[in-house]
Computed example of a mutant assay.
Amino acid sequence: MRSLWKPILLYTLLVIGGIISVYPLVYMFLTALKPMTLLFEFPPRLVPSEITWSNFTEAWVSQDFARYLFNSILVTLSSFALIFVLSSMLAFAYSRFHFKGKGLSFAILMGGLVIPSLTLLIPQFLLIRQLGLFNSLWGLIVVYAAGSIPFTTFLLKGFFDSISFDIDESVEMEGGNAWTLFYSIILPLSKPAFVPATIFNALVVWEEFPWALTIINDPLKRTLPVALANFQGQYTTQWGIVFAGSLIAIVPIILLFLMLQRYFIAGITAGAIKG
């Protein structure tokens, strides 16, 4: 009988944790379905007695919401492409090559993980303005990529280190070079490591607000977090519309996670298992 208490307690805690995690989304969705007349009813009801989809329609058609969604998707994809190229090459160099100052340079790179992003806001602003990228999506992409490279490099290097170094000798014996090893061997074997990196970087870039608010003045170049902040200001009391817009904004991230979830745990633990 005692052996049953441990799994029962474990699953009970998991269910409670799941409910706590899902409840905000459920509350947002049910509130988005409420007409304006039911938002402030007393006593409040979680499940509305009357359902309307007009909040989603209004959220989509107002303030050029589709353009903001496109901007966020473009910035996220472009940032990740830049992160993928630079971080994978850096991780490969630190994993496979030996060069003077390797330890120091890697320590400096990892130091970027402990620097709060808000402390870099002013230096980044001055740099982006000097580069002529102010008020452009490229100004977002460059900074987002630079901020995510340290963590992604650290994650990929751990996985690259777990791949047998005997492969390097085999490639060399077959007449291959470092590029052959990197492109034809290391990258294909490291696909599981890119799944958590993809999800993490997508979340960071998709929801980033302070930097996007700082350098984007053109309304047509706003990303979703900035648009939603202005959206909430316009509809201060129409929380159904605000929640509907927020739900539309998180749909791409949810879809991304659902597509990659079966690889997520494997990608997180692969390096540890192989090591």
Results as ranks from 00 to 15, higher is better:
Leu155Val: 12
Arg67Ile: 12
Leu13Lys: 11
Met1Cys: 05
Phe125Gly: 00
Val61Gly: 01
Phe80Gly: 05
Ala229Ser: 15
Ser95Leu: 14
Ser117Ala: 15
Trp211Arg: 04
Asn201Lys: 11
Gly245Met: 12
Phe56Glu: 02
Val142Ile: 09
Ile108Ser: 06
Ala229Asn: 15
Thr76Glu: 05
Tyr235Arg: 06
Val171Tyr: 00
Arg45Lys: 15
Ala93Met: 00
Ala229Tyr: 14
Phe40Leu: 15
Thr237Val: 15
Val143Asp: 00
Pro123Ala: 00
Leu187Pro: 01
Leu224Trp: 00
Glu208Leu: 07
Asn177Gly: 12
Pro24Lys: 06
Lys221Gln: 12
Ser72Ile: 02
Gln63Arg: 09
Gln238Lys: 14
Ile254Trp: 06
Val114Asp: 03
Thr269Asp: 10
Phe40Ala: 14
Gly132Ile: 04
Gln130Tyr: 08
Met89Glu: 10
Ile141Asp: 08
Ala202Phe: 07
Met110Gly: 04
Ile141Glu: 01
Ile83Ser: 03
Gly175Asp: 10
Glu169Pro: 09
Pro210Tyr: 15
Met259Ser: 05
Thr37Lys: 12
Val143Thr: 00
Phe92Val: 03
Gly112Gln: 10
Leu155Arg: 01
Ile253Tyr: 04
Ile83Cys: 09
Tyr68Ala: 06
Leu189His: 07
Thr37Gly: 08
Ile250Pro: 09
Glu50His: 11
Val114Phe: 13
Tyr263Thr: 04
Leu74Ala: 12
Ala91Cys: 11
Thr119Pro: 02
Arg262Ala: 09
Trp60Tyr: 13
Ala66Phe: 07
Leu90His: 07
Tyr144Trp: 04
Ala32Tyr: 06
Pro43Tyr: 05
Pro150Asp: 09
Ser148Trp: 08
Ser87Asn: 11
Leu39Cys: 00
Leu25Arg: 13
Leu39Asn: 05
Gln232Val: 09
Pro123Ile: 08
Leu133Gln: 06
Met28Cys: 13
Leu10Lys: 06
Ala270Ser: 10
Leu9Ile: 14
Ile122Cys: 01
Thr152Gly: 06
Val75Trp: 00
Val22Trp: 06
Ser21Val: 01
Ala59Glu: 07
Met36Ala: 13
Thr223Phe: 04
Leu133Lys: 02
Gly111Trp: 05
Ile128Gln: 02
His98Lys: 14
Thr237Leu: 15
Val22Phe: 09
Ile108Leu: 13
Leu133Pro: 07
Leu82Trp: 13
Lys157Phe: 06
Phe97Trp: 12
Thr76His: 02
Ser246His: 05
Leu82Tyr: 13
Glu174Val: 07
Ala272Asp: 11
Thr198Asn: 03
Pro43Thr: 08
Gly17Thr: 11
Pro188Asn: 00
Phe65Pro: 01
Pro123Tyr: 02
Arg2Asn: 13
Ala227Asp: 05
Thr223Tyr: 04
Met89Cys: 15
Leu256His: 01
Arg96Leu: 10
